[in-house]
């Protein structure tokens, strides 16, 4: 029962969502939209389960040496946002949006930009033109790097054009082949999941 019920639910929901694609009847559209709504609701609950697990783990790990201040900071931050939303709402000019604009957004973009340093330093250590494929990779990366900055036009007018050509044709060809592979792989996996052959999602309670 512990395995059969989930497998049956997976099979039924999968077949319904697959079959609706072949029908333009209003009932099919209603069923499709209804299941999408259900999906969103359950997804929100999975988010809440994740938050609960995060709080539980933070409280548990607080006993570890030197961890307590960071765990407290995370928990305070987690509590602060719902509190701000509760007090001032989430409309324009509210404390909730102030916290997003002046704390979350700047920190997120800073962390994002921080990765530039690590990517560059890792590639500086890792990139070596020892083989033909490695040399092609290195040269393409250099051309695209230089081609996407304003100084490229000063070096040569054809630099940005070459960058555009590389990205639009040879790079795009390989990208499309990868996407076709992903598409075929995803379809196969989806079919295996619906038919109950792929059951890895049933592990780990």
């Amino acid at each position: 029962m512990r395995t059969r019920i989930p497998l049956l639910v997976c099979l039924v929901s999968g077949i319904i969502m697959f079959a609706q694609y072949f029908s333009s009847h209003p009932i099919a559209k209603t069923v499709y939209n209804g299941i999408l709504e259900w999906w969103q609701i359950i997804f929100a609950f999975t988010m809440f389960v994740g938050v609960a697990a995060f709080i539980r783990n933070s409280l548990k790990n607080m006993r570890r040496k030197g961890e307590a201040p960071y765990r407290v900071a995370a928990l305070v931050g987690l509590t602060l946002m719902p509190l701000l939303a509760l007090i001032g709402g989430t409309k324009f000019g509210s404390p909730f949006l102030w916290a997003f604009d002046n704390m979350i957004a700047p920190m997120q973009s800073t962390v994002f930009s921080l990765l530039a340093f690590f990517v560059v330093s890792a590639s500086f250590r890792g990139f070596r033109a020892r083989t033909i494929p490695a040399t092609i990779l290195l040269l393409t990366a250099l051309i695209v790097l230089i081609g996407r900055i304003p100084i490229a036009e000063l070096i040569s007018e054809s630099f940005p054009k070459l960058t555009f050509w590389i990205q639009s044709y040879p790079s795009m060809a390989a990208r499309r082949a990868i996407l076709i592979g992903i598409g075929l792989g995803s379809m196969t996996t989806a079919l295996r999941v619906i038919l109950g052959i792929e059951r890895t999602y049933l592990r780990g309670e």
Partner: peptide, 19 residues
């Protein structure tokens, strides 16, 4: 497992034609 199976099944059903 039941809600997870529902989400994965529905997602897989949508994924086949979309992919």
């Amino acid at each position: 497992r039941i809600p997870i199976a529902f989400m994965i099944g529905a997602g897989a059903g949508v994924a086949i034609p979309a992919m």
